[in-house]
Design a protein around this nucleic acid. Structure first.
Lengths: 112, 112
DNA sequence: GAAACACTTCGCTATATGGTGAAGTATAAA
DNA sequence: TTTATACTTCACCATATAGCGAAGTGTTTC
């Protein structure tokens, strides 16, 4: 398989593909600077598990960790999401197409 | 690890996390109804490899395959992307925040 | 200084992913 | 009716991922 080098986009989408990680991002969106244990508390996994997820998120550039004393504060950094969305925007015409067809049908129907 | 059941969102983001699959979606966005071999031609993988990628994409609901005769035409169906984008939109304020700060700085600077 | 705390790192396990060649299944062409 | 075409499925390999408990590191607290 070799896995030469995953691109930034690969890492971003892969990071978003896990519900635990999406939950972390959501919580940080509500309240920035939460500690690792605060993030872990409502989750059903141990600290080592969360640490790995945070590694994936920071490799993707989606969070930053700043250690003060013995606690680590986690912050959102949504830049890569912006790029992921830019990629998706190209398909916008595609998911609005069905709506367009509906509109066309209704208009045509009104004239019959 | 158990992998109880991946959600639709999980599958969508996971499907988007691979460059081969993003390439397939891009090509289909330009030209719908391409066959499997047409999609495979510019890629450096064998047909079985592409078949697997297409399986991932259709499990995620991003493409549909329709067989006529012995060729299979592949079509985009971007609905799940719409949902993925809706998820990402929540973070929009976050990646525009730096721009807001810049604006604030410039305005403040102008008054000094 | 000892003990508790907040993580992180280290094996370890099980499953998923991405690729292959070979064989299987229809359909189309000779 | 054989043969080629267009895939798909199968068996297999190597690596990645997600989880765990146990041990390690640095920082407070007692």
């Amino acid at each position: 398989m070799v896995k030469y080098k995953a691109s930034a986009m690969d890492r971003t989408f892969a990071a978003l593909a896990d519900p635990t990680r999406r939950y972390v991002l959501q919580r940080l969106n509500e309240e920035s600077g939460l500690s690792v244990s605060e993030l872990a508390r409502p989750l059903s996994l141990k600290l080592p598990g969360l640490t790995k997820h945070l590694d994936v998120l920071s490799d993707a550039g989606l969070i930053t960790r700043t250690k003060t004393g013995r606690t680590v504060a986690v912050h959102l950094s949504a830049g890569p999401m912006r790029e992921a969305m830019a990629w998706l925007e190209r398909y916008e015409r595609f998911w609005t197409a069905s709506l367009d067809r509906l509109v066309a049908f209704v208009e045509e129907d009104g004239q019959s």
